[in-house]
Design a binder for these strands. Structure first.
Length: 518
RNA sequence: GGCAGCGUAGCUCAGUGGUAGAGCAGGGGAAUCAUAAUCCCUUGGUCGGGGGUUCAAAUCCCUCCGCUGCUACCA
């Protein structure tokens, strides 16, 4: 409904020269889980991802491939659109920086910055590495053979001097610090916030925001020898997607901006937490509400790298372990924000212990008893006992607990809270022993099974953001249609109706069994 | 080098002044509805070393050792 509460969140736009790997999948997955959560919680959500397609590296790669840059990016950006399907992401838009709407937005922003006196023409000179797309300071370089300068990354550098437009970043130091001070949750986690603050306090230099050495980019309005520096181009995507420069009342911009969350990897935090808010403020626009920098994955204890050959493609995880299993593991295994390690053993542990034995088996043992002993329909409960009320209260309390964790992007703690109720329910079954009640007190058995079904209903509704498909299958088995799965159905008001026929239960989370060598 | 942070049970970590905790792993037992899943009990740490403040320190201060992050334009 119009005028309802909105939530706008974004992933970085991914550089098309990269092949999608677990890191990309992770960033977007975190946003996806949050987007799904907010939708279920009644928000009008806009969830944006996309690809960053300009820059010298892309231009060179296209040349090497013997195709025009646009044709090249059309091809490689498809890898990231495919990732959306592989991981079951629910983004509402997929932006590409080569789209006309983006060119228009970036040029409009540039013009606005120029009008506001935030941009001036100067000259940039320094040692430049084409491979790294970066300038290096004299002190960072080492001498290579035949007197060439070598960057710390091992790339060769050349001396480049070119006219360049500059953004007056130096003018924004105090206002940025004031903004961090006034909005303690603008940068998360707190450790990263401190790093950004100390960086800004150490002094800001003006930023070179145009290039003349290559042409694959968005032309500077009125001076098309220049193209815009990749970060000004890339960051602007976040307002392109809400229709900038149309900021009129009733526009998407008016509805969704400022963004509630920019999710980023820790390596690009500075661009989002320093440059981007400065660009926006200089243009008279509001900065985003939050930038969250998450950590990196190592693989079996080792840094992920092409040379080690241990880069993990999301498809291979999904094929090996299952889609929802992969989604669950990535969000459960590490404290969101910290670095984590991906290992086969840890993955199997989580799948078997928490999904198959904990959650899946709870559902299976409960529903199969209902199937066999209650005529395949939701049983009629008698008045609840204290034990029943305790378990139901835990289930009813989940939304509040999980919502608090999701607000801080603490996905691991949100899942932990849900699993405490899974464990409560497994304890409850053993204590109530409905298989014994079957002979002594069938009516009481029905009540116990009703309480279990109702608890499972809450669990399945709550696990939808992280495991959409599996949760849907559980809700199917509880006879809960698509209109009965929002958070507004949690609590007694949405409780299962006795007599509702239920389909025969089927296992949702199979155990992971190692293939034995033959 | 500078600034910041971390070092707690075999593993991953929570705990920031008042009798050392969780999950997993290990050991013992119960149950048999269920994906041989579940439940109960339990072994295990001089909280990196040393010094100090305090009636009391994993928790505050100093110092040493080890590790990590940031220090300008790479998810």
């Amino acid at each position: 409904m119009a005028g309802s509460k909105t939530y706008y969140l974004t992933t970085p736009i991914y550089y098309v020269n990269d092949v999608p790997h677990i890191g990309h999948a992770y960033t977007t997955l975190a946003c996806d889980a949050l987007a799904r959560f907010m939708r279920l919680d009644g928000y009008e959500v806009k969830f944006l991802t996309g690809t960053d397609e300009h820059g010298q590296k892309v231009e060179k790669s296209a040349q090497a491939a013997g195709v025009a840059p646009q044709a090249f990016t059309d091809r490689v950006s498809q890898n990231f659109r495919d990732l959306v399907r592989v991981m079951n992401f629910s983004n509402d838009d997929f932006i590409r920086t080569t789209e006309p709407r983006h060119v228009e937005a970036v040029q409009a922003l540039w013009t606005r910055l120029l009008e506001n006196g935030a941009i001036y023409l100067g000259a940039y000179a320094g040692w430049y590495s084409v491979r790294d797309e970066a300038f290096y300071g004299e002190d960072e370089l080492t001498d290579g053979p035949d007197g060439r300068k070598i960057a710390p990354t091992g790339a060769e550098c050349e001396w480049v001097e070119e006219p360049s437009y500059f953004f007056r970043l130096s003018a924004w130091q105090d206002r940025l610090l004031a903004h961090y001070e006034a909005h303690p949750d603008f940068i998360l986690p707190p450790g990263r916030r401190n790093e950004v603050i100390s960086f800004v306090k150490s002094g800001l230099k003006d930023l070179s925001i145009s290039r003349t050495a290559f042409s694959w980019g968005i032309p500077v309005p009125g001076d098309d020898k220049h193209i815009m520096y990749v970060w000004l181009d890339a960051l602007t995507n976040y307002i392109t997607a809400v229709g900038y420069p149309n900021t009129a009342e009733g526009s998407d911009y008016a509805r969704y901006w400022p963004a509630d969350l920019h999710m980023v990897g820790k390596d690009i935090l500075r661009f989002h937490a320093v440059y981007w808010p400065a660009f926006l403020m200089a243009a008279g626009l509001e900065p985003p509400r939050r930038v969250f920098a998450h950590g990196w994955w190592t693989i079996e204890g080792q840094k992920m790298s092409k040379s080690l050959g241990n880069v993990i493609a999301p498809e291979s995880l999904v094929t090996t372990y299952g889609l929802d299993q992969t989604r669950y593991f990535l969000l459960r295994e590490v404290a969101f924000g910290k670095d984590g390690d991906f290992s086969h053993a840890a993955m199997v542990q989580r799948i078997n212990s928490e999904l198959a034995n904990g959650y899946g088996n709870l559902v299976q043992r409960s529903l199969s008893m209902i199937g066999k002993n209650c005529g395949g329909a939701v049983p009629e409960p008698q008045p609840f006992t204290a034990a029943d009320e305790t378990l139901l209260a835990a289930a009813h309390g989940l939304l509040g607990a999980v919502r608090a964790e999701m607000r801080e992007q603490a996905f691991h703690r949100a899942l932990d809270a849900i699993w405490r109720v899974v464990d409560d329910a497994n304890r409850y079954i053993d204590e109530q022993a409905p298989w014994a009640l079957k002979k002594t007190d069938p009516a009481r058995m029905g009540t116990v099974l009703y309480v279990l079904a109702e608890t499972i209903r809450h669990l399945a509704i709550m696990t939808q953001p992280v495991m959409p498909e599996s949760s849907a299958r559980i809700l199917d088995q509880l006879g809960q249609g698509a209109d009965a799965r929002g958070f507004d159905r949690l609590g007694p008001a949405g409780a299962l109706k006795p007599g509702t026929p239920l389909p025969a239960p089927q296992g949702v989370f199979p155990r992971y069994v190692e293939e034995t060598k033959s």
